Simulated scan of single mutants.
Amino acid sequence: MLQKLDIVKLDVKDILIVPDFPGKHLGALAKRYPKAQLLSVTNEGVSNFQMWSAKALANWRSFFDGSTSKLVGYISTGKFDISDNSVDLIFSDLLLQDLADPKHFLQECWRVLREGGLITFSYLGPDTAKELRSLAVPALKLKNLLSPWDMHDMSDALLAERFSDPVMDMECLTLDYEKPELLLEDVSALKLMHSAPIEMTAMDVLPQKLTLEVVYGHAWAVGKHLAKAKDNVAYIDLNQIGRKTRTDSA
């Protein structure tokens, strides 16, 4: 995701990272944008001390002025604890597949992005863990991705939420394992199975590899003040209508 930002020209003053694992993205983005203030929405299990240490090491502006909130807060309220039009870049890594409604996430991103801002993200696609889904092992209690969207689904959703020029990409990564226990640890960490342990007899049928379909994308928040069309009717806020006065000359 950081490499894909190399092709983007963006004047960044404020960045929202959602989620941060724990402070890892903050450090990388602080190095890339040393003058920016970084706002973090941390994953569950990340302590306040971890984020305090990360901010202290990465970016003094974020240490004093930046804010940190928990992802569970967004999940429960559906809103980021920041004001409208307040960030230039949203950096979201491996989150969307765990959200019941990614469209609502995109709406909230649109709300907090400034005009000309950028959302960049990655998430797990529907072919993730396809080796496990082909097995008939009742003891292996797999969980479906909450949002198994392919990159075409996401591109359509971005356009529907008024984002401009979406760019989508996808790659499949293959992880190889020497022990089935290690594979199960990763499957659990990726929230692809229930936490209940499986019987040791089922270990013998587990594959030695795991496929991750990783979808990448970015899109721009452009034209935030333009009219929004719905049902072939354009709705315009009264505040967007300017008023000209005419002065009669002698």
Rank of each mutant, 00 (worst) to 15 (best):
113 L>Y: 06
101 D>Q: 14
117 G>A: 01
109 C>Q: 07
73 G>R: 15
73 G>K: 14
84 D>C: 05
81 D>H: 12
73 G>C: 10
102 P>A: 02
78 G>M: 04
67 S>Y: 12
98 D>Y: 06
92 S>E: 06
118 L>E: 04
90 I>N: 01
90 I>S: 00
111 R>H: 01
108 E>V: 02
66 G>S: 13
94 L>H: 09
70 K>Y: 13
76 S>P: 04
88 D>E: 11
107 Q>T: 03
112 V>S: 00
101 D>S: 09
74 Y>T: 04
84 D>K: 12
100 A>M: 04
106 L>F: 10
98 D>A: 05
115 E>H: 03
89 L>V: 12
97 Q>P: 07
82 I>K: 10
79 K>R: 15
90 I>E: 06
62 S>A: 15
64 F>C: 13
98 D>F: 10
95 L>F: 07
86 S>P: 12
68 T>M: 12
89 L>E: 07
111 R>L: 06
87 V>W: 12
87 V>D: 15
104 H>K: 13
79 K>Q: 15
106 L>P: 02
85 N>M: 07
102 P>Y: 02
73 G>E: 15
93 D>T: 07
105 F>P: 03
95 L>M: 06
68 T>S: 13
95 L>W: 07
69 S>N: 15
68 T>K: 15
71 L>F: 03
116 G>H: 06
90 I>P: 01
99 L>S: 01
80 F>Q: 13
81 D>F: 08
104 H>A: 10
89 L>T: 10
67 S>N: 14
74 Y>E: 04
80 F>H: 05
106 L>T: 09
75 I>S: 03
107 Q>H: 00
85 N>L: 04
98 D>C: 03
95 L>D: 01
114 R>Y: 03
77 T>D: 01
81 D>I: 09
108 E>F: 09
65 D>Y: 14
81 D>N: 11
84 D>H: 12
83 S>N: 07
91 F>M: 09
76 S>W: 05
76 S>T: 08
105 F>N: 01
104 H>L: 09
61 R>F: 05
85 N>F: 06
62 S>G: 15
85 N>K: 04
76 S>K: 15
110 W>R: 10
117 G>C: 05
75 I>C: 01
78 G>E: 03
117 G>N: 00
91 F>I: 02
62 S>M: 09
115 E>T: 08
114 R>L: 02
83 S>G: 11
81 D>W: 04
91 F>N: 07
93 D>H: 14
79 K>L: 11
107 Q>R: 10
105 F>M: 05
72 V>T: 14
74 Y>S: 13
77 T>R: 08
65 D>W: 14
62 S>N: 11
70 K>L: 10
81 D>L: 06
92 S>C: 09
80 F>G: 13
76 S>C: 03
78 G>S: 06
96 L>Y: 04
91 F>P: 03
71 L>G: 08
90 I>M: 05
81 D>C: 05
68 T>G: 09
82 I>S: 02
79 K>M: 12
110 W>L: 02
104 H>E: 10
103 K>F: 01
107 Q>S: 05
70 K>C: 10
71 L>I: 09
80 F>D: 07
80 F>I: 15
62 S>L: 13
65 D>T: 14
114 R>H: 00
112 V>K: 01
102 P>F: 00
89 L>R: 04
100 A>T: 02
93 D>K: 11
70 K>R: 15
68 T>D: 15
72 V>G: 03
94 L>F: 13
79 K>N: 14
95 L>N: 06
111 R>S: 00
